[in-house]
Design a binder for these strands. Sequence first.
DNA 1: GTAGTTGTAACCGTTTTTATTACAACAATA
DNA 2: TATTGTTGTAATAAAAACGGTTACAACTAC
Lengths: 140, 140
Amino acid sequence: MQFSSRFTIATHILLCIETFKDDYKVTSNLLAGSINTNPVIVRNILGLLSSAGIVEIKAGVGGASLSKSPNEITLLEIFKAVEKEESLFHFHENPNPQCPVGRTVHSVMDGKLDNIQSAMENEMAKITLKQLIEETKEQI
Amino acid sequence: MQFSSRFTIATHILLCIETFKDDYKVTSNLLAGSINTNPVIVRNILGLLSSAGIVEIKAGVGGASLSKSPNEITLLEIFKAVEKEESLFHFHENPNPQCPVGRTVHSVMDGKLDNIQSAMENEMAKITLKQLIEETKEQI
DNA sequence: GTAGTTGTAACCGTTTTTATTACAACAATA
DNA sequence: TATTGTTGTAATAAAAACGGTTACAACTAC
Protein backbone atom coordinates (compact mmCIF):
# COMPACT_ATOMS: atom_id res chain seq x y z
CA MET A 1 0.00 0.00 0.00
CA GLN A 2 1.27 3.39 -0.96
CA PHE A 3 0.41 6.82 0.33
CA SER A 4 -1.83 8.72 -2.05
CA SER A 5 -0.26 11.14 -4.50
CA ARG A 6 -1.87 13.97 -2.51
CA PHE A 7 1.42 14.30 -0.63
CA THR A 8 3.66 14.80 -3.65
CA ILE A 9 1.00 16.93 -5.34
CA ALA A 10 0.74 19.15 -2.25
CA THR A 11 4.50 19.61 -2.20
CA HIS A 12 4.49 20.36 -5.92
CA ILE A 13 1.79 22.98 -5.30
CA LEU A 14 3.84 24.71 -2.61
CA LEU A 15 6.93 24.73 -4.82
CA CYS A 16 4.91 26.37 -7.59
CA ILE A 17 3.38 28.96 -5.28
CA GLU A 18 6.79 30.07 -4.13
CA THR A 19 8.47 29.83 -7.51
CA PHE A 20 5.82 31.78 -9.41
CA LYS A 21 4.60 34.21 -6.76
CA ASP A 22 6.21 37.26 -8.40
CA ASP A 23 5.25 36.46 -11.97
CA TYR A 24 1.82 34.88 -12.00
CA LYS A 25 -1.40 34.69 -10.05
CA VAL A 26 -1.16 31.09 -8.85
CA THR A 27 -4.60 29.64 -9.56
CA SER A 28 -5.84 26.08 -9.47
CA ASN A 29 -5.72 26.14 -13.26
CA LEU A 30 -2.08 27.14 -13.41
CA LEU A 31 -1.19 24.52 -10.80
CA ALA A 32 -3.19 21.81 -12.55
CA GLY A 33 -1.21 22.57 -15.69
CA SER A 34 2.12 22.07 -13.96
CA ILE A 35 1.04 18.95 -12.10
CA ASN A 36 -0.87 17.59 -15.06
CA THR A 37 -4.13 16.86 -13.34
CA ASN A 38 -7.61 18.32 -12.94
CA PRO A 39 -8.11 21.74 -11.30
CA VAL A 40 -10.65 20.28 -8.88
CA ILE A 41 -8.01 17.90 -7.54
CA VAL A 42 -5.80 20.91 -6.95
CA ARG A 43 -8.57 22.90 -5.28
CA ASN A 44 -9.31 20.06 -2.87
CA ILE A 45 -5.67 19.68 -1.87
CA LEU A 46 -5.30 23.45 -1.60
CA GLY A 47 -8.29 23.35 0.75
CA LEU A 48 -6.51 20.81 2.96
CA LEU A 49 -3.37 22.95 2.98
CA SER A 50 -5.46 25.99 3.83
CA SER A 51 -7.20 24.17 6.71
CA ALA A 52 -3.77 23.26 8.02
CA GLY A 53 -2.72 26.90 7.99
CA ILE A 54 -0.06 26.41 5.34
CA VAL A 55 -1.53 28.49 2.52
CA GLU A 56 -4.02 31.30 2.03
CA ILE A 57 -6.43 31.39 -0.86
CA LYS A 58 -8.14 34.47 -2.17
CA ALA A 59 -11.80 33.73 -2.75
CA GLY A 60 -13.40 35.26 -5.81
CA VAL A 61 -10.33 36.86 -7.29
CA GLY A 62 -8.29 33.69 -6.95
CA GLY A 63 -4.69 32.84 -6.24
CA ALA A 64 -2.82 31.05 -3.46
CA SER A 65 0.11 32.14 -1.31
CA LEU A 66 2.06 30.71 1.61
CA SER A 67 0.83 31.55 5.13
CA LYS A 68 4.31 31.32 6.58
CA SER A 69 7.94 31.24 5.70
CA PRO A 70 9.20 28.24 3.68
CA ASN A 71 11.73 27.39 6.37
CA GLU A 72 8.86 26.90 8.80
CA ILE A 73 7.09 24.37 6.58
CA THR A 74 8.32 20.78 6.81
CA LEU A 75 7.43 17.72 4.78
CA LEU A 76 5.87 16.28 7.93
CA GLU A 77 3.49 19.21 8.18
CA ILE A 78 2.51 18.82 4.55
CA PHE A 79 2.06 15.09 4.99
CA LYS A 80 -0.20 15.49 8.00
CA ALA A 81 -2.26 18.09 6.17
CA VAL A 82 -3.20 15.65 3.42
CA GLU A 83 -3.14 12.22 5.14
CA LYS A 84 -5.68 12.06 7.89
CA GLU A 85 -4.89 8.62 9.37
CA GLU A 86 -3.21 8.95 12.75
CA SER A 87 -1.54 5.57 12.61
CA LEU A 88 0.55 4.25 9.77
CA PHE A 89 -0.43 0.69 10.63
CA HIS A 90 -3.78 -1.01 10.48
CA PHE A 91 -3.81 -3.48 13.34
CA HIS A 92 -6.27 -6.37 12.93
CA GLU A 93 -9.13 -5.36 15.12
CA ASN A 94 -10.10 -8.19 17.44
CA PRO A 95 -7.38 -10.68 18.31
CA ASN A 96 -8.79 -13.48 20.45
CA PRO A 97 -8.46 -12.60 24.15
CA GLN A 98 -8.73 -16.29 25.07
CA CYS A 99 -5.46 -16.99 23.25
CA PRO A 100 -2.22 -16.09 25.05
CA VAL A 101 -0.82 -14.54 21.90
CA GLY A 102 -4.06 -12.83 20.91
CA ARG A 103 -4.29 -11.36 24.39
CA THR A 104 -0.78 -9.89 24.37
CA VAL A 105 -0.02 -9.06 20.75
CA HIS A 106 -1.17 -5.49 21.05
CA SER A 107 0.91 -4.57 24.07
CA VAL A 108 3.92 -6.34 22.58
CA MET A 109 3.70 -4.60 19.21
CA ASP A 110 2.15 -1.17 19.74
CA GLY A 111 5.30 0.43 21.07
CA LYS A 112 7.41 -0.93 18.23
CA LEU A 113 4.96 0.32 15.63
CA ASP A 114 5.03 3.75 17.23
CA ASN A 115 8.81 3.77 17.04
CA ILE A 116 8.72 2.92 13.35
CA GLN A 117 6.22 5.66 12.62
CA SER A 118 8.26 8.15 14.63
CA ALA A 119 11.39 7.29 12.68
CA MET A 120 9.57 8.12 9.48
CA GLU A 121 8.06 11.31 10.84
CA ASN A 122 11.35 12.53 12.26
CA GLU A 123 12.95 12.21 8.86
CA MET A 124 10.04 14.08 7.29
CA ALA A 125 10.37 16.83 9.86
CA LYS A 126 14.01 17.38 8.90
CA ILE A 127 13.16 18.50 5.40
CA THR A 128 11.81 22.01 4.91
CA LEU A 129 10.13 23.59 1.94
CA LYS A 130 12.99 26.07 1.89
CA GLN A 131 15.48 23.32 1.10
CA LEU A 132 13.33 22.07 -1.74
CA ILE A 133 12.87 25.56 -3.14
CA GLU A 134 16.60 26.17 -3.12
CA GLU A 135 17.31 22.93 -4.91
CA THR A 136 14.63 23.78 -7.43
CA LYS A 137 16.16 27.20 -8.08
CA GLU A 138 19.56 25.61 -8.58
CA GLN A 139 18.16 23.26 -11.16
CA ILE A 140 16.15 25.81 -13.10
CA MET B 1 -3.55 5.69 3.85
CA GLN B 2 -2.60 2.85 6.11
CA PHE B 3 -0.68 -0.31 5.45
CA SER B 4 -2.95 -3.31 5.24
CA SER B 5 -3.41 -5.46 8.30
CA ARG B 6 -1.45 -8.20 6.53
CA PHE B 7 1.65 -6.95 8.31
CA THR B 8 0.32 -7.22 11.85
CA ILE B 9 -1.47 -10.46 10.99
CA ALA B 10 1.76 -11.93 9.59
CA THR B 11 3.62 -10.99 12.75
CA HIS B 12 0.82 -12.45 14.86
CA ILE B 13 1.08 -15.67 12.85
CA LEU B 14 4.82 -15.96 13.47
CA LEU B 15 4.36 -15.32 17.18
CA CYS B 16 1.79 -18.11 17.32
CA ILE B 17 3.95 -20.54 15.36
CA GLU B 18 6.80 -20.10 17.78
CA THR B 19 4.68 -19.98 20.93
CA PHE B 20 2.64 -23.09 20.15
CA LYS B 21 5.16 -25.20 18.25
CA ASP B 22 5.61 -27.73 21.05
CA ASP B 23 1.96 -28.08 21.98
CA TYR B 24 -0.14 -27.86 18.85
CA LYS B 25 -0.04 -28.43 15.13
CA VAL B 26 -0.24 -24.81 13.96
CA THR B 27 -2.85 -24.89 11.20
CA SER B 28 -4.60 -22.06 9.41
CA ASN B 29 -7.64 -22.86 11.51
CA LEU B 30 -5.81 -22.51 14.79
CA LEU B 31 -4.22 -19.26 13.61
CA ALA B 32 -7.50 -17.87 12.35
CA GLY B 33 -8.96 -18.52 15.80
CA SER B 34 -6.23 -16.52 17.52
CA ILE B 35 -6.30 -13.67 15.02
CA ASN B 36 -10.07 -13.73 14.73
CA THR B 37 -10.33 -13.88 10.99
CA ASN B 38 -11.00 -16.33 8.21
CA PRO B 39 -8.66 -19.31 7.62
CA VAL B 40 -8.31 -18.36 3.93
CA ILE B 41 -6.91 -14.97 4.90
CA VAL B 42 -4.37 -16.81 7.04
CA ARG B 43 -3.49 -19.26 4.29
CA ASN B 44 -2.87 -16.44 1.82
CA ILE B 45 -0.57 -14.61 4.22
CA LEU B 46 1.17 -17.87 5.14
CA GLY B 47 1.75 -18.34 1.42
CA LEU B 48 3.45 -14.96 1.20
CA LEU B 49 5.63 -15.77 4.22
CA SER B 50 6.48 -19.11 2.66
CA SER B 51 7.44 -17.51 -0.67
CA ALA B 52 9.71 -15.17 1.27
CA GLY B 53 11.45 -18.12 2.91
CA ILE B 54 10.26 -17.28 6.40
CA VAL B 55 8.03 -20.27 7.09
CA GLU B 56 7.55 -23.80 5.88
CA ILE B 57 4.15 -25.33 5.45
CA LYS B 58 3.42 -29.03 5.38
CA ALA B 59 1.07 -29.78 2.52
CA GLY B 60 -1.60 -32.38 3.12
CA VAL B 61 -0.92 -33.01 6.78
CA GLY B 62 -0.85 -29.34 7.62
CA GLY B 63 0.99 -27.12 10.04
CA ALA B 64 3.47 -24.27 9.74
CA SER B 65 6.92 -23.77 11.21
CA LEU B 66 9.68 -21.18 10.98
CA SER B 67 12.31 -21.66 8.28
CA LYS B 68 14.98 -19.93 10.32
CA SER B 69 15.80 -18.74 13.78
CA PRO B 70 13.62 -15.96 15.26
CA ASN B 71 16.63 -13.73 15.76
CA GLU B 72 17.22 -13.82 12.00
CA ILE B 73 13.70 -12.60 11.21
CA THR B 74 13.14 -8.84 11.36
CA LEU B 75 9.98 -6.79 11.09
CA LEU B 76 11.37 -5.40 7.84
CA GLU B 77 11.57 -8.86 6.34
CA ILE B 78 8.00 -9.60 7.39
CA PHE B 79 6.85 -6.27 6.02
CA LYS B 80 8.47 -6.83 2.66
CA ALA B 81 6.99 -10.30 2.45
CA VAL B 82 3.44 -8.98 2.64
CA GLU B 83 3.64 -5.50 1.08
CA LYS B 84 4.74 -5.72 -2.50
CA GLU B 85 5.06 -2.01 -3.36
CA GLU B 86 8.70 -0.98 -3.69
CA SER B 87 8.09 2.66 -2.91
CA LEU B 88 6.15 4.01 0.03
CA PHE B 89 5.17 7.07 -1.98
CA HIS B 90 2.96 7.40 -5.01
CA PHE B 91 4.42 10.22 -7.08
CA HIS B 92 1.96 11.87 -9.47
CA GLU B 93 2.85 10.37 -12.79
CA ASN B 94 3.31 13.08 -15.39
CA PRO B 95 4.34 16.50 -14.14
CA ASN B 96 4.49 18.98 -17.01
CA PRO B 97 8.00 19.04 -18.53
CA GLN B 98 7.32 22.49 -19.99
CA CYS B 99 7.01 23.93 -16.48
CA PRO B 100 10.25 24.64 -14.56
CA VAL B 101 8.81 23.09 -11.42
CA GLY B 102 7.19 20.16 -13.20
CA ARG B 103 10.48 19.44 -14.94
CA THR B 104 12.54 19.38 -11.72
CA VAL B 105 10.18 18.17 -9.02
CA HIS B 106 11.21 14.55 -9.39
CA SER B 107 14.94 15.08 -9.09
CA VAL B 108 14.41 17.47 -6.19
CA MET B 109 12.15 15.12 -4.23
CA ASP B 110 13.14 11.55 -5.06
CA GLY B 111 16.19 11.50 -2.83
CA LYS B 112 14.27 12.92 0.11
CA LEU B 113 11.53 10.36 -0.27
CA ASP B 114 14.12 7.60 -0.34
CA ASN B 115 15.61 8.92 2.87
CA ILE B 116 12.23 8.89 4.57
CA GLN B 117 11.52 5.35 3.47
CA SER B 118 14.99 4.24 4.60
CA ALA B 119 14.44 5.75 8.03
CA MET B 120 11.30 3.68 8.40
CA GLU B 121 12.93 0.52 7.09
CA ASN B 122 15.97 0.90 9.29
CA GLU B 123 13.77 1.06 12.35
CA MET B 124 11.88 -2.03 11.17
CA ALA B 125 15.14 -3.86 10.64
CA LYS B 126 16.13 -3.27 14.26
CA ILE B 127 13.28 -5.33 15.64
CA THR B 128 13.56 -9.11 15.51
CA LEU B 129 10.94 -11.75 16.02
CA LYS B 130 13.03 -13.01 18.90
CA GLN B 131 12.50 -9.78 20.82
CA LEU B 132 8.77 -9.99 20.29
CA ILE B 133 8.67 -13.62 21.37
CA GLU B 134 10.54 -12.85 24.56
CA GLU B 135 8.21 -10.01 25.41
CA THR B 136 5.27 -12.25 24.72
CA LYS B 137 6.62 -14.96 27.03
CA GLU B 138 7.15 -12.41 29.76
CA GLN B 139 3.57 -11.29 29.51
CA ILE B 140 1.99 -14.72 29.40
C1' DG C 1 -10.48 -45.22 1.65
C1' DT C 2 -11.05 -41.59 5.19
C1' DA C 3 -10.06 -37.41 7.51
C1' DG C 4 -7.90 -33.24 7.88
C1' DT C 5 -5.37 -29.75 5.65
C1' DT C 6 -3.54 -26.69 2.04
C1' DG C 7 -3.78 -23.90 -2.23
C1' DT C 8 -6.56 -21.41 -5.10
C1' DA C 9 -10.42 -19.63 -7.65
C1' DA C 10 -14.55 -17.10 -7.67
C1' DC C 11 -17.30 -14.03 -5.67
C1' DC C 12 -19.03 -9.93 -2.68
C1' DG C 13 -19.43 -5.46 -0.34
C1' DT C 14 -16.84 -1.58 1.23
C1' DT C 15 -13.57 2.00 0.99
C1' DT C 16 -10.10 4.86 -1.25
C1' DT C 17 -8.21 7.08 -5.08
C1' DT C 18 -8.23 9.85 -9.12
C1' DA C 19 -10.82 12.18 -12.43
C1' DT C 20 -14.68 14.70 -14.34
C1' DT C 21 -18.83 17.79 -14.95
C1' DA C 22 -21.68 21.13 -13.04
C1' DC C 23 -22.86 25.06 -10.59
C1' DA C 24 -23.54 28.46 -6.79
C1' DA C 25 -20.89 32.01 -4.30
C1' DC C 26 -17.63 35.47 -4.49
C1' DA C 27 -14.66 39.59 -5.65
C1' DA C 28 -12.57 42.78 -8.74
C1' DT C 29 -13.43 45.79 -12.40
C1' DA C 30 -15.20 47.73 -16.67
C1' DT D 1 -24.59 46.94 -12.32
C1' DA D 2 -23.14 43.38 -15.34
C1' DT D 3 -19.22 40.70 -16.63
C1' DT D 4 -15.37 37.83 -15.88
C1' DG D 5 -12.55 34.68 -13.66
C1' DT D 6 -12.02 32.09 -9.70
C1' DT D 7 -13.11 29.19 -5.63
C1' DG D 8 -15.73 25.71 -3.01
C1' DT D 9 -18.38 21.83 -3.23
C1' DA D 10 -21.61 18.28 -4.76
C1' DA D 11 -22.47 14.43 -7.65
C1' DT D 12 -20.83 10.85 -10.33
C1' DA D 13 -17.75 7.36 -12.20
C1' DA D 14 -14.15 3.82 -12.96
C1' DA D 15 -10.50 1.34 -11.02
C1' DA D 16 -8.00 -0.77 -7.37
C1' DA D 17 -7.30 -2.69 -2.78
C1' DC D 18 -9.10 -4.91 1.25
C1' DG D 19 -11.24 -8.16 4.08
C1' DG D 20 -14.22 -11.77 4.00
C1' DT D 21 -16.65 -16.02 2.40
C1' DT D 22 -17.80 -20.40 -0.05
C1' DA D 23 -16.26 -24.03 -2.74
C1' DC D 24 -13.35 -27.52 -4.19
C1' DA D 25 -9.29 -30.05 -6.07
C1' DA D 26 -4.87 -31.85 -4.42
C1' DC D 27 -2.28 -33.79 -0.99
C1' DT D 28 -0.60 -36.65 3.09
C1' DA D 29 -0.96 -39.46 7.08
C1' DC D 30 -3.33 -43.08 9.01
